[in-house]
Amino acid sequence: MTVMQHIWIVLGVLFVFLNIAAGLIWVERRLLAMWQDRLGPNRAGPLGLMIVLADTLKLFFKEDWIPPFADKWVFIFAPAIVVASVLMSFVIIPFAPGILVADLNVGLLFFLAMSSLGVYSIVLGGWASNNKYSLLGALRGASQMIAYEVFMGLSLMGVVMLSRSFNLAEIVAAQEKVWFVFLQPVGFVIFFIAGLAETHRLPFDIPESESELIAGFHAEYSGMKFGMFFIGEYLGITLISAMTVTLFFGGWLGPAFLPPVVWFFLKTFVFIGLFILLRASLPRPRYDQLLEYGWKLLLPLVLVNLLVTGAIALWMKH
C-alpha cells in the first residue's frame, strides 16, 4: 500500500467512526424512545436526524467553563485521553480484507492496552474536578476497570488459543469455518459483559450514576469537554461492538452478496443496538454487587473457560 492509501484509510476510519459516534446520539434516543413507546427526536430535519447536528452545535456553543477550584491542565486533558485511546484501538481493527490501519501481530494486546488507558481519563477527570462526587466516580471507575480488565483479557485468551494468533486479521480468517462465538460462548458472554463495564455503559455506569453521584467524574464538565466524554463513550460502544464482531462473529465474513465491509458494519450495528437495549431494560447494580460479580463469579468462570479451552485444544492436538 502506498503512503497515500494509508492516509486515506486513516482519514476514512476517523471520518466513519466519528460520524457513527455522533450518529449514535440520534440512534440511541430513537431506539430508547421506541422501547419506551415514544417517538424520540423527530422535529429537527427528516426523522429528526438533524438532532445530531443540533446537539453538536449546542455542545460547541455552550460555555466552556473550567471551575476555579479545578486542576486546570489535567481537567482539560482528561477528556482528550478517552477519545484518543479509543480511536487508537480502531487502528488494529480489520474492517475488510486490506482495509485496516495497522496490521499488528500483537493487535489484540494493543487493543487491551489502549482500552485500559481509557481509565486515565476517568480518574484524572474526576481528580481534577476537585469535587467529592467526581472523585467518588473516579474511584469507582478505577476499581471497576481493574476488576473487569483482568477477565476481559483472559476471556479473549480462548480465542487466541483457537486462532493461534494475536493478529486480528488472522483471527477473523480463522473463523472461516465456524465463528468463535460457537466455540467460545462463555468467552463471548464474558467479553461482552467486560466490554459493557469497560465503556461504563448502563447497567454498569457506576462511575457516573446520575442518581447517586450526579454524573460522577464528569459532573463539572461542560461544553465540548463534556462532548468529548460523550463521544468517547459512543466510540467505546462502537469499538466493543466492532471487537465483538471481529473476535466472535467472523468480522467481515459473510455471504458474498454483500461486500465484506458492509457485513462488518451490519454486524457491528446489531451489537450497538444490543448495547442500547441493555440500557433500556436493565437496572444499575449496586457498586459492591458489581465488584463482587466481577471478582467472585466472572473471574473464576473465565479461568475455568480458559482451562477447558486449553484442555480441549491440547486434546485436539493429540
Binding site: 424512545a33 421506541m34 422501547w35 419506551q36 413507546d37 415514544r38 417517538l39 437495549l277 441493555l278 433500556a280 431494560s281 436493565l282
Partner: peptide, 22 residues
C-alpha cells in the same frame, strides 16, 4: 429474568406510540 426483561423491552419496538404530537 434479565434476558426476559430484555426480550420484553425489545418487543416494545412493535407497540403503539404514546406520544401526542403537540
Amino acid at each position: 429474568s434479565h434476558l426476559r426483561t430484555m426480550w420484553l423491552v425489545f418487543l416494545h419496538l412493535f407497540h403503539k406510540r404514546e406520544t401526542i404530537q403537540y
